[in-house]
Design a protein around this nucleic acid. Structure first.
Lengths: 210, 210, 210, 210
DNA sequence: TATGAATGAGCGTTCATTCAT
DNA sequence: AATGAATGAACGCTCATTCAT
């Protein structure tokens, strides 16, 4: 019922009824929700707070989103789409497997930092999603992990990575570290996302190198 | 109003008013809360559900705990105390710094797996605690990280670990991975907590070795 | 604002803007509303459901009908007009009073069965109409009862019907039974509307016969 | 979850926390709901109106009743219990079958008039009950009709009633008339419930007599 | 120690209706 | 003649907490 995507990741911006300079209502709602969910948590944020922050009424929100849950789902779906497409580009490039894994590892840190609020919300609140949407999100995450695991296996077969590491476990180890960035990384701290990405990639590669 | 600890981590079992064979009410409440919070989330679990699961009434719960929040805090405090004390024992032993860090790394995985529900609750719900209790919990976590960081610095000074790694970052990296165990580790899966601890320790040490 | 009648009970079909084969919008709305109100009840049916079922939009509905209430009123008015005109024809014929009452009684059962959904809606939901429209509908019903009562009185004066029956009460008794058809009669059951009409007329006449 | 009966149809009144003279909360809620549902309809009456009329808060209502639906169900169940037990007493007495049917017919009119509000609510709003509760209520009604039909069949076998009447249809006919009392009978009108019962019983018996 | 009736504020959601286009 | 985004008020319901007993 609710459109599956409101974020215009490409495609021409379409003129709506809003004067230019004003973002369309669905995007405003999504931004407000993202900020509030990250600050206060999903359950502690009321729909009233969201619509107030977005400058619309509840009715308008329910015109675009089927439920408060939908807002949460859309936040997940948005960051998932971005990370998936960037990862696939890096993983499928013509570089050496070592460089490709490094690129993937560094990039996922960069995008996680870029979408830090979304990530925080993600891991705190996914369990609050309705079961079916939760399953969709998990499936997409699994595809992501799978692709990275294949990269490690490829490196092991090529003799570039140690063969005595469980690729599955390494993936869980590394993404665990990445997914927890939200609990310590600060944008106003000493390191940029790129710098952290570099270091995390080093740590991963050192642990894998034959 | 509510006592700060009900868990008897050692010390002789004391006879209470309860007939032997029945756990005392506060522990029953804490167990029920832990299970339900892990299964359904903190906000989604009602006080009524908790007292039903513990076989008592609301009045009894409010006799022992000041609020629903207190239950959450007590769950955190309990696992924090256990992990802190075990870590200090390993970190202060007379082994080589490399062996001490390895032991700490492996052990935190083992206890995290042993208290997996608590860990899941911790990272999902800490933001829902009242600010002051949240600060207490964070401070304790920080002390924990601090001690591990010192271990790494000690190894770097001794030339056992590479000096070009940021100890802070490595700690965040490693504990990120550990804290995320709850999102993939299954007790009925193929690996024991000890096995995962071993592998995680390997990965950490490989990334640190000079 | 909304015309008082859209049903063309006789008169030549007039070409509208709709392509032939497609019923005009107001009729489509009325049919959809009748079906949905009977299935789910008036308050439980949303305007959105009605316009979806009719294949139009809300704007179109509010163009033809002033309110959701109007739809309900129009449904009543339609069946009232039909029953009134058929009853008057039978009541004013040149037959004996006994045959005329019998014809009226049997016919009201037949039309009630033919418009069973409308009857169901009528008795469930009339109290939800605005007071003034409700008064109009009640007044029309009263005129109907009145005419039938006159028939009974005519029979009593003629000595065909027992004089010790209250005509008013007999009318209420009989129409009570008729109006309740909706709660047990099934179109796919063993009896046709005509058969039920016959039997009901028998029961009425037996109770009246001198 | 909600107790199945709050009405004390017999049994000693139990002292509660309420000072004598004040009805207990569940009864007050049921009375208020009955009055308001009959006046305004079920869907048009808000829970807030009910609790205001009963002088309690929403929380109190939901302490005793699982839902607004439950209130409706309890109203039905109450009148159903009364009518069923009175009918069985009359139907199982040692009188002649004719007198027994007459007693049943007259009595159901009397109780319907005594519980006129409940009856009005019943036939207007039953379709709004949840499916399973609706089924329970229908089943009970069916048992009631069944018993009365047996009485008619008994009379037919005994040769007291005409054998060419369908007992099923006669039951539907008569109870239709009874169930519609709510749409015309007025307590402040010229006839008592007993008088109407007498006349209705006459009409039924006349139509059945061999 | 413990009960459980009662509170009261707040929640997510619905929906008939309006109106600029 | 028709669209559909947006409103705004109300709704049924939940729940942590209190308190007389």
């Amino acid at each position: 019922m609710a459109p599956s995507s409101f974020t215009e990741e490409g495609g021409e911006p379409v003129a709506r009824t809003q004067p230019s300079g004003q973002e369309p209502v669905p995007q405003r709602l999504l931004s407000a929700a993202t900020r509030l969910f990250a600050e206060q948590g999903f359950e502690t944020t009321s729909v009233q707070q969201i619509v107030d922050a977005a400058g619309v009424t509840k009715g308008a929100m329910y015109h675009y989103f089927g439920s408060k849950d939908d807002l949460l789902y859309e936040i997940y779906a948005r960051v998932l789409r971005v990370q998936m497409s960037r990862m696939e580009q890096a993983a499928d490039s013509s570089e050496s497997v070592e460089r490709r894994l490094r690129a993937v590892a560094a990039d996922v840190v960069v995008t996680t930092v870029a979408y830090l609020e979304d990530t925080v919300i993600f891991f705190r609140s996914m369990h609050l999603l309705h079961a079916d949407k939760q399953a969709e999100v998990r499936a997409e995450r699994r595809r992501y992990h799978e692709r990275v695991r294949q990269l490690i296996e490829e490196g092991q077969r090529a003799g570039v990575f140690r063969a005595d590491r469980s690729p599955e476990l390494v993936v869980d180890f590394f993404f665990g570290a990445v997914h927890h960035l939200g609990s310590w990384y600060r944008r106003d701290g000493p390191m940029s996302g790129e710098q952290v990405g570099d270091q995390f990639a080093d740590l991963l590669l050192d642990a894998l190198r034959a």
